[in-house]
Amino acid sequence: MNIGVVVFPGSNCDHDCRHVFQDVLGQAVTMVWHKETSLVGLDAVILPGGFSYGDYLRTGAIARFSPVMQAVKQFAAGGGLVLGICNGFQILLEAGLLSGAMLRNKSLHFICRETYVKVENAATPFTSLCKSGQVLKIPIAHADGNYYTDPVTLAGLQANAQIIFRYCRADGKVTPEACPNGSLDNIAGIRNAAGNVLGMMPHPERCAEAALGNEDGRLILASMVEGVKKAKHAEVVV
């Protein structure tokens, strides 16, 4: 299995992602510079966190024009698994691979702390190792994570079980107080209609090994590895 981690100018969680997939989950990882135009040979793609292009204009607004994003679009259209974390989520929104937009956090602060998120849908290639309703402790680190979309799109996300993670209390209750950034409907992560593209603000790669005192994030990244294995197996059977 070969996991691609895209590197934009200003990405800063790319090596954390590489470390987890390679050293913790034992998978081959290819770092993909943003000028690449092909993702051939890769089984899944990660858009990591950071401050691509200095967050100029809007977060993710310039990164979406990187040559690699055309390849990411094709990869996603072909059913490949794409995970955008934090700035990666913002890029997926700006690129139109996920619906909605990010506003500045309601408090205006850059928030860097642990949050609890509830797994709202465990029947996805990103959450298959989680239980439905499971509460994960995963840190956030962002200034623009206040998810917004129009009421029709929101209703669609809700109806199609596209909201994968919602901010909650430690006991799993989804309350307005548990939402760190003002996000609509406590949204912490959504997927596309086809189900193969996920964007999330919390950083699973920062809590994926025992040495860090928290392995909750590993469930998400290991689910992805399982998802790719299943897809490969299905190809062989066909």
């Binding site: 506003l103 500045r104 956090n105 309601k106 408090s107 205006l108 206040n146 917004y148 003002g182």
Partner: peptide, 14 residues
């Protein structure tokens, strides 16, 4: 500018 009706936290702070 942010659309009318969308909370503008910077505007509020100012």
């Amino acid at each position: 500018t942010l659309k009318q009706g969308i909370l503008d936290p910077q505007g509020k702070a100012i």
